[in-house]
Deep mutational scan, measured.
Amino acid sequence: MALNTPQITPTKKITVRAIGEELPRGDYQRCPQCDMLFSLPEINSHQSAYCPRCQAKIRDGRDWSLTRLAAMAFTMLLLMPFAWGEPLLHIWLLGIRIDANVMQGIWQMTKQGDAITGSMVFFCVIGAPLILVTSIAYLWFGNRLGMNLRPVLLMLERLKEWVMLDIYLVGIGVASIKVQDYAHIQAGVGLFSFVALVILTTVTLSHLNVEELWERFYPQRPATRRDEKLRVCLGCHFTGYPDQRGRCPRCHIPLRLRRRHSLQKCWAALLASIVLLLPANLLPISIIYLNGGRQEDTILSGIMSLASSNIAVAGIVFIASILVPFTKVIVMFTLLLSIHFKCQQGLRTRILLLRMVTWIGRWSMLDLFVISLTMSLINRDQILAFTMGPAAFYFGAAVILTILAVEWLDSRLLWDAHESGNARFDD
């Protein structure tokens, strides 16, 4: 018995066209964080690309023209004298008006014999932002004059995390709450300039795509075929072959399989920071003279006294001054041990922890910024005066060393310790 099946006739004509040209192939790229070699397709503007294995951002879609970056830099340069030299806060102490600005706080630190601690604050609040705007201006002028731009481009990517104007702005709020127990506070004209400078700096850093600047100024022929001998440069993120001198053909720094002496430098910085954190938390970090009496505060006791007036601000200072430094030390110690013992479990967790400490590390400088600003506000000789204690130097040095330890660690070593050939990683 035959089955009668109805015929289905399409209502619209289906047209099949042959592909007349070869589909576009992607360029081969190595991930600078996990060293995976993959094919990167062509990316349009405002599109980002991520590593298929570790999800690290390979290409950032946010990109401004150099002219727009230069305009932002010149605007920031105009704001800087007002943000640093004009009063941020006014207080009335014992019937006398006192003005506080950024430069005055750094000068008070240096004047009291601790120039190293003052230079830490100076670099993060004044030096690094000033280098940022002058570097962008150098790129703008240098591109037109045919100057060598490689050193500036190499420095810009590392400079971003040292620009800490946003953290200093939080420190202004913390210092205001600490001082309000002794005097009446009012915002100064410099505060508005400083807030504007923070906003412009944040926007500029978020749109400063150094890798795209490398592509514009020093374009290189990408690798179009897969080759395990391809290496990625950690300076400019170019994937290719080393030249005859073993250097990256684009930025001219040595092109090595792994960062040289990464573990040794990381261990040295980490152990030194552990040693410095002990006096930083045991010795007094601030000293207040009130009517001839002397009151010393460690980091913890200062947080407890701050909690009596504002528990939320005390929580912020606790996280930045105690929780973050010790968390960074514990995480980095764990990561280094996992590399030495070739741990194969929990790779995803370790990668996330490394990215976390990379982002939060700079916030530990908050305590030094609060001390710097408070020193310029309260300084009335023996009637009422505020000065920093010996722990300030140890704390600042420990924070900087932990930042350097994270920067010096080559994250690809975590993958080397893991089993080879993993296309995915999980716990």
Results as ranks from 00 to 15, higher is better:
160 K>Y: 08
336 L>G: 11
340 H>T: 10
312 A>I: 12
230 L>K: 11
368 L>S: 04
208 L>D: 14
366 L>P: 08
393 F>W: 07
394 Y>T: 02
425 F>W: 14
162 W>T: 01
330 I>N: 07
179 V>W: 00
307 A>M: 08
208 L>Y: 08
360 I>F: 09
27 D>T: 12
364 S>Q: 00
414 L>H: 06
201 T>I: 07
167 I>Y: 04
211 E>S: 10
388 M>E: 06
401 L>M: 12
83 A>N: 03
215 E>S: 07
185 I>A: 05
101 N>T: 10
155 M>L: 04
26 G>Y: 12
384 L>Y: 03
419 E>D: 12
44 N>I: 12
307 A>D: 03
370 V>L: 04
41 P>N: 14
149 L>F: 02
73 A>E: 12
329 V>D: 13
300 L>G: 05
103 M>T: 11
49 A>M: 12
335 L>K: 09
166 D>Q: 15
110 T>C: 11
69 L>F: 14
383 I>Q: 02
285 I>V: 10
47 Q>K: 05
386 F>S: 00
67 T>N: 14
234 L>I: 05
261 H>T: 06
204 T>E: 05
208 L>E: 11
303 I>Y: 07
298 T>C: 12
359 W>S: 09
354 L>H: 10
41 P>F: 11
20 G>S: 09
112 Q>H: 07
175 A>Y: 01
378 I>R: 00
409 L>K: 07
253 I>M: 02
303 I>W: 09
167 I>A: 15
319 I>E: 10
101 N>E: 02
11 T>Q: 15
91 I>Y: 04
149 L>N: 05
397 A>Q: 02
225 R>D: 10
366 L>W: 03
189 V>R: 12
346 G>I: 13
92 W>I: 05
240 G>M: 14
223 A>M: 10
95 G>C: 03
146 G>F: 03
50 Y>I: 15
23 L>N: 10
331 V>F: 14
32 P>R: 10
74 F>V: 10
218 Y>P: 03
21 E>F: 12
176 S>P: 03
38 F>C: 08
56 A>W: 10
27 D>S: 13
166 D>T: 15
23 L>K: 11
2 A>D: 10
204 T>K: 09
394 Y>V: 01
364 S>T: 07
154 L>K: 01
39 S>R: 12
205 L>A: 13
238 F>Q: 15
275 V>I: 11
138 Y>P: 02
310 N>Q: 12
152 V>W: 01
3 L>C: 14
30 R>L: 12
139 L>D: 00
186 Q>W: 10
174 V>A: 15
184 H>F: 14
220 Q>Y: 13
234 L>P: 07
293 G>N: 04
103 M>H: 06
325 P>I: 02
279 P>G: 04
111 K>Y: 09
2 A>Q: 13
19 I>R: 11
96 I>H: 02
415 W>Q: 08
402 T>W: 10
124 C>Q: 02
189 V>T: 12
310 N>C: 05
49 A>G: 07
11 T>F: 11
283 L>N: 04
427 D>L: 14
20 G>P: 09
19 I>G: 14
182 Y>W: 08
130 L>P: 07
375 M>I: 09
88 L>I: 06
81 P>W: 07
117 T>L: 02
23 L>S: 10
153 L>Q: 07
99 D>H: 11
283 L>A: 13
47 Q>P: 04
16 V>P: 15
20 G>L: 12
70 A>Y: 14
58 I>C: 08
76 M>K: 08
399 V>R: 00
399 V>A: 13
217 F>E: 02
136 I>E: 03
144 R>F: 06
56 A>C: 11
169 L>A: 03
44 N>C: 09
31 C>L: 00
105 G>V: 03
110 T>H: 03
213 L>R: 11
2 A>G: 06
261 H>R: 03
243 D>T: 07
5 T>I: 10
